[in-house]
């Protein structure tokens, strides 16, 4: 849940990048960090293990300046994608305000996308949150690999697999090159702030 200080008109919210292992969650944050240095004085904190796999989480705080007189600060997190780190994912999801689900477009990772989305839904439900109601954006990452002749899933098939019920805004992306990264974050921020505005009535 966002922290809102009505006296100082500061709002701090938390967005978590979720998705299967190696789908590009950390790459998203790395690109945001490089591209958005003017929005942060902090470093991107990554706790990785062998092969740059996220072990605990990545953390990047951003200041978005003033929106409707409120100072908006956003904390971006990633979770470890590997199935065995579910307790860490649960911990990182605590008090989440918005979620970016980073799906892997590789055909060979189709099942992992399913399982990770299901895992997200269950972990949210444990915290009394509904995946249909939380601000959520889906990103179909690694779209560029299709051009290299690597089998990837067509977007319409990924939409049918993952988004037919959720009907969340979705974007194709190549996070390594930054394509689609900004659009994904921007949409998630808009949805999250709109949601918080409604919940906290912070524009009044």
């Amino acid at each position: 849940m966002a922290v809102f200080n009505p006296k100082d008109r500061v709002i701090e919210c938390k967005i978590v990048y979720y998705g299967p292992g190696r789908s590009g969650k950390t790459t998203n944050l790395e690109y945001i960090f490089k591209a958005g240095k003017k929005y942060t004085n902090s470093e991107l904190v990554s706790i990785n293990t062998k092969g740059d796999r996220t072990l605990f989480f990545d953390f990047l705080p951003l200041g978005l300046g003033k929106i409707r007189g409120c100072d908006v600060k956003v904390q971006l997190y990633t979770v470890p994608g590997q199935a065995k780190y579910n307790s860490t994912r649960k911990l990182v999801l605590k008090n989440v305000d918005g979620v970016v689900f980073v799906a892997d477009s590789l055909e060979i990772r189709r099942k992992e996308n399913f399982l990770s989305l299901k895992d997200l839904q269950q972990n949210l439900a444990e915290k009394n949150m509904n995946i249909l109601k939380i601000p959520l954006v889906i990103q179909y990452n690694k779209r560029d690999l299709g051009e290299q002749g690597i089998p990837i899933m067509p977007i319409k098939d990924m939409e049918r697999d993952l988004n037919s019920k959720l009907k969340a805004p979705s974007f194709g992306a190549n996070a390594l090159k930054g394509k689609g990264v900004g659009e994904t974050l921007k949409k998630c921020l808009i949805l999250t702030l709109r949601h918080l505005q409604k919940e906290l009535q912070w524009s009044q």
Binding site: R22, G51, D52, R53, L106, I108, R109, L145, Q148, G149, I150, P151
Partner: peptide
């Protein structure tokens, strides 16, 4: 081989 090498590069060792 191209596919297998890419999975290796992506850290998808099982694949």
């Amino acid at each position: 081989i191209k596919e297998a090498a890419l999975y290796q590069k992506q850290g998808l060792f099982e694949e």
